[in-house]
Nucleic acid binder design. Sequence first.
DNA 1: AGTATAAATCGGATTTTCTCGATATATGGA
DNA 2: TCCATATATCGAGAAAATCCGATTTATACT
Lengths: 97, 97
Amino acid sequence: MDKDEILKALANPARMDILNWLKNPEEHFPTQEHPFEMGVCASQFERCGLSQSTVSAHLGTLHRAGLVTSKRVGQWIFYKRNEETIATFLQQLTQDL
Amino acid sequence: MDKDEILKALANPARMDILNWLKNPEEHFPTQEHPFEMGVCASQFERCGLSQSTVSAHLGTLHRAGLVTSKRVGQWIFYKRNEETIATFLQQLTQDL
DNA sequence: AGTATAAATCGGATTTTCTCGATATATGGA
DNA sequence: TCCATATATCGAGAAAATCCGATTTATACT
């Protein structure tokens, strides 16, 4: 868990939006074929108004920081919050900061 | 309290170091004429190996984000952590993230 | 094999951040 | 008033982040 990498990942409005939307997928995304417990399909995040390649880069940044997990299902990749890492990060930041 | 501005301010190792050193000034800085309760003199932070102007810019960033307060005493400016803002930020981040 | 869809990667343009040395401003003391 | 010290600001160069369209890769379906 690289604290600095996580802070850099969080210091961007679009990535923060993505993390927030993932808290309640059913409120922010149209119903999808697979249940939201599997995660949210990457292309759904283009709703933030950014291009496919940019969204993919943001998801990559969040993933490298450990803030989300991804799972390939057929031709789709589903993203979920990594609650464990997020909780650990918050605890550590609260201690260290 | 601008959460995004604070996150950007924290997403930098030098600024994080400064905030951490300010938690225990007596452990990180040589004894100074004025008590550490007043804060730490700006020039002390050059111990991070950066130039005077760069350190000044970092302190400015932390100050604009509300993470530190400053107080002029004679020709010196003393910096202290703003524990209130830091605590509020941590609470809000724990809620929002 | 050929086509379609989803996502990652590439190449490049623009913007922001980081850093420095030089200069300006503010204060204190001789 | 003149000089010394502390800090901020300016101007510029280097590095990193942001974003896009185009291309590549992976998978599925026919």
